[in-house]
Amino acid sequence: MIPLRQKHTRHVPDTTLPLINIVLLLVLAFMIAGVIETPLPAEFEPVQANSETGSSSETAPLSLVITQTGEVLIDSEQVKVSDLHELFKMSSEQEMHLSIKADSRAPAADVIGVLAKAEDAGIKKAVVMTIGADK
């Protein structure tokens, strides 16, 4: 009798190992080089800086986002401007500084108004976060 099915005994090399290596390296690269942050609103255009002046950004204890229309967001949630004074007061008691990521098209009066409220509440340092200008 001739067997109809012959067993394949030929060893096929495992090609998934290089793939896993590359993917693990990509994971490590993202973990080391990337920073996990709250996502910015859609169509957000950050304020640009022309020179390399200004200190490099640190993780700010109190971080606000001001949108194109002047809305103030904390952790992607809208905050009333009238509620900011209390929040700034608590932050100043903990000696936190304020970091603002403003849309470049946001009204200057709204951003300066928030900065003024921070100053009134006793915050000692307030910064506007910028990115390098497009070359």
């Binding site: 994971v27 002046t53 200004g54 490099s56 100053e119």
Partner: peptide, 21 residues
């Protein structure tokens, strides 16, 4: 893990301009 880090990681280099009025 790769998809998670690709979605949440940001590589923007932010600079601070001090502007307290």
């Amino acid at each position: 893990l790769l998809v998670f880090f690709m979605l949440v990681s940001q590589f923007t280099q932010w600079r601070e301009i001090e502007m307290l009025p």
